[in-house]
């Protein structure tokens, strides 16, 4: 990696001030994506701003009418949370399909979402759970529904200088399933991913890797086929991805119905 300046702010305000300085500033959470991009020289950066010294950005806990998931919560912490395991086994199932044990112990929930990969594994189940992103900025705080958070590959609704401070999940229990379709059984990226969850009688469906962003769709094969817009890439063709949406959505809906 090329040399960079490095900061460890203690508060959001400090972090915000650092972000506002001229130059290419980059937030560091788990680092499993940022370091790869820096090593491959896909990104260049002047200052890395490590968020880990800021209190209150990590952990899972029930708070009033919702469950708080700190964006710096690592994937393995998320899966190990009893709260999560009890309410949303689908999230535990999803985490176990992600990366490797070593990567799950480093990658963060916030990092997975803020990188805005169309194939981000956490996105489809969280879309089903109606998660909301709480965002801090120098001009104040705001809440962005996850459905409106992703704008395109690598693009989110975060304005320059804004920092994700909470992934907020409504407390309702959900049963569901996550199907990650890929070649290998670990350490792989999805061609297609499908999350399906029933919250009470409400069945919800979301897709990954088949559109510029992860998408929530109405719970039917027809709707999923209508909404998906996959591309050809090194992993699979668009045609195949479309057909897999058909097969996997049907299976996911059947599994949740049973």
């Amino acid at each position: 990696m090329r040399a960079f300046a490095y900061e460890e702010p203690r508060t959001l305000a400090e972090a915000g001030a650092l972000m506002a300085r001229p130059g290419r500033n980059q937030l560091l959470a788990g680092g499993t994506d940022l370091l790869v991009r820096l090593k491959r020289r896909e990104w260049t950066v002047d200052t890395v701003i490590n968020l880990k010294r800021i209190a209150g950005l990590r952990g899972v806990e029930a708070r009033g009418d919702h469950v708080f998931v700190g964006p710096l919560t690592t994937l393995d912490e998320l899966a190990a949370s009893e709260l999560v395991a009890k309410r949303w086994p689908i999230l535990v199932e999803t985490v176990h399909e992600m990366g490797s044990p070593q990567v799950r112990a480093m990658s963060t929930a916030g990092g997975n979402l803020c990188n805005a990969s169309p194939a981000a594994d956490l996105a489809p189940p969280l879309l089903c759970l109606d998660a909301t992103m709480k965002v801090w900025g120098l001009r104040g705080e705001r809440h962005v529904p996850l459905r409106e958070f992703f704008l395109g590959p690598g693009k989110t609704a975060l304005e320059p200088g804004e920092i994700l401070t909470e992934i907020r999940i409504p407390p309702a229990l959900a049963k569901g399933c996550f199907i990650k379709f890929c070649t290998r059984r670990a350490m792989d990226l999805a061609f297609v991913s499908v999350a399906c969850a029933a919250v009470g009688k409400d069945v919800r469906l979301a897709l990954g890797a088949v559109a510029p962003t992860p998408i929530r769709v109405l719970p039917s094969v027809e709707e999923a086929m209508k909404r998906c817009a996959p591309i050809d890439d090194v992993r699979a063709s668009a045609e195949y991805r479309r057909e897999m949406v058909r097969v996997l959505v049907r299976r996911a809906l059947a599994r949740v119905a049973s």
């Binding site: 290998r184 670990a186 792989d188 990226l189 090194v234 992993r235």
Partner: peptide, 23 residues
């Protein structure tokens, strides 16, 4: 090796898929 205009598109272990212990 997936090539495009002579360039390998998957020259890293994530996309050049060697079998892992689960496979």
């Amino acid at each position: 090796c997936v090539l495009k205009d002579g360039r390998m598109q998957n020259g890293y272990f994530l996309d050049y898929r060697m079998p892992g212990i689960r496979d």
